[in-house]
Design a binder for these strands. Structure first.
Lengths: 329, 329
DNA sequence: CTGTTAGCGCCTTCAT
DNA sequence: ATGAAGGCGCTAACAG
């Protein structure tokens, strides 16, 4: 069913139908009603692709995620879709599965007018990303990392990690192990580690390199890193840069016959949904990922109207969730 | 940059450029190379919207999910995107947030050629859904529910629930509580309950209605339903129809001073990622949601070529994950 | 107030 | 082997 058919049925021209549908231009009341009636009768819906081609707008937002099947990503997407819907937009998901090439491919693909704005939830932003991003004609917002010259929504990783470390120190912990991730991930790999180190320094707590381990993002890694640290020394507390790593660490401790938190306190960062239902409930930092997604989407719409605002950095809030996995000394 | 520009730069006609890009028709080798060079030099990418309009294909799959920020949904989407990518397709996410009206709206919206196929992960399929679905011109696959006349990918809810109940009975449990959900969700609300009841019957275990509670899908509900059941009687085992409900139940038991599994065994269904890391690790049924997503996507592509195959029902496998939350009596 | 026309960018006859 | 022309469905400019 095309606009032409509606026009014929209503005894008017296609232009009139268009005017009625888009509510612009003048059209005599009776004709308007006739058109409306036909539209309703045949349940006509205009072809969005044709509209896109004509309007040079696709009414779609593209979201590039490293791995959709993670709690973080799906919460972000939930936030994005919510705002998108409010603007009459659809959301296109590009799942890169942590493949940098894919990220760049999607960046290119999405740029050709197939979406009106891009939200990129990257882990690593390389020069090649920047090369592609510089040529983009649609607004882009980076989520999770700060990228110079581009609007970024970042989680306050530094303060979060610092606050957490400080909390442990105030509970009189001094032997605080650290389980981190590779530095390729700027926010998680570098910033959270720096905050930990800075905090130790400020409080005059000696840094023991053997109490630090770096690995991947998964639970198993947390388990292995914890084991590695235990071979050297048993800390009184462990700061893991993600909740999953913390869970792995807790299991390694239990398997080593250590009780949490009686023998060793453990904290994470991220506050996954189940953190409070773990045993013991995990002390962690709550990030508002859905809100980040909303902010990112709002920023994109903002940029669609005011491209010159490009470059802002917005920081989301966080909240320390004190739960039973920490014991004061 | 349009095809016309490329044509001009390469000294050929737009038609020739099109032929080169789509690898059809004859074009002299030297011209082909000239075109290819220009395309590479200017990093030209055709406008997918114009292609869609012309080809009457959008190269996009639509996925309607009840709530993207759930582990199930995101795993399904991961599977769909994987298969879609292999076919050169993009994935459009429609997040309904459990709103039936939205589901129907999206069904309508997606049908106008804005996607070439739809995967609907519904909780409830009403007559109004069917009315819209009947008019669809693009293939649709239902995931998670069986709908007559439509290709459906279903999880083997009956056998899974039956197997789980049987497992408890074989561990000599007789007072087996049941925490279910509303019957509006056919697969989870009705089928899993029926399997539980059938199994009790077959093994001549008496059904105690006070040991059964029905509520929502979240952890808190599991907690409350368990409390309610405990007011009546302390069962030796609890079958919760989802892992989240099981987690809530475990907490209610702990708060009531009961140990799991020493005093009460608890099992769930679904095998969320953290199930094995809970304390105690949760005995549950593992569903392959990502695989379901893949199957659904493959079925859609299949239907695009052979629409007459509409109506198949594919059942995914499941696996009983025996973990420490169950104690034999 | 309404209809005709042109064009968004691409692909596919048709003619050469 | 290649180019010109028309059309996918829609909307905006221009007449009238």
């Amino acid at each position: 069913m095309r606009i032409k058919d509606i026009a014929k049925l209503a005894g008017v021209s296609p232009a009139t139908v268009s005017r009625v549908m888009n509510n612009n231009g003048y059209v005599k009341e009776e004709k308007r009603e006739a058109v409306l009636k036909v539209i309703k009768d045949v349940d006509y819906q205009p072809n969005p692709i044709a509209q896109s081609l004509k309007n040079q707008k696709s009414q779609m937002l593209g979201v590039i995620v490293p791995k959709i099947s993670t709690e973080t990503a799906s919460r972000v997407v939930a936030g994005v879709t919510e705002v998108a819907k409010a603007h009459g937009y659809q959301v296109l998901i590009a799942n890169t599965d942590l493949d940098i090439e894919e990220e760049i491919n999607y960046l290119k693909f999405l740029s050709n007018k197939s979406v009106d704005g891009i939200i990129m939830m990257g882990t690593e932003v390389t020069d090649r990303h920047l090369a592609v991003m510089d040529k983009l004609t649609v607004p882009i917002v980076i989520l999770g990392q700060r990228v110079k010259g581009y609007t970024s929504i970042i989680h306050n990783d530094y303060d979060a990690s610092f606050t957490m470390t400080e909390y442990l120190i105030k509970q009189k912990h001094r032997d605080i192990a650290f389980i981190g991730v590779d530095e390729k991930d700027e926010a998680v790999g570098i910033v959270r580690k720096k905050a930990y180190l800075d905090c130790l320094k400020i409080y005059n707590v000696e840094v023991d390199n053997q109490l630090m381990a770096i690995g991947d993002f998964d639970i198993d890694t947390g388990y292995q890193m914890m084991q590695k640290i235990l071979m050297h020394k048993t800390p009184t507390a462990v700061l893991a840069v993600t909740d999953h790593l913390a869970i792995g660490a807790i299991h390694a401790l239990l398997d080593a016959g250590l009780h949490v938190p009686k023998d060793v306190s453990v904290v994470g960062i991220g506050d996954i949904k189940l953190a409070e239902y773990l045993n013991p409930p995990l002390t962690t930092v709550h990030y508002t990922f859905k809100t980040s997604g909303k902010m990112a989407a709002e920023a994109v719409f903002e940029l669609m109207d005011n491209p010159e605002k490009q470059g802002d950095t917005l920081m989301t809030t966080f909240e320390l969730k004190k739960r039973a996995s920490v014991r004061p000394l």
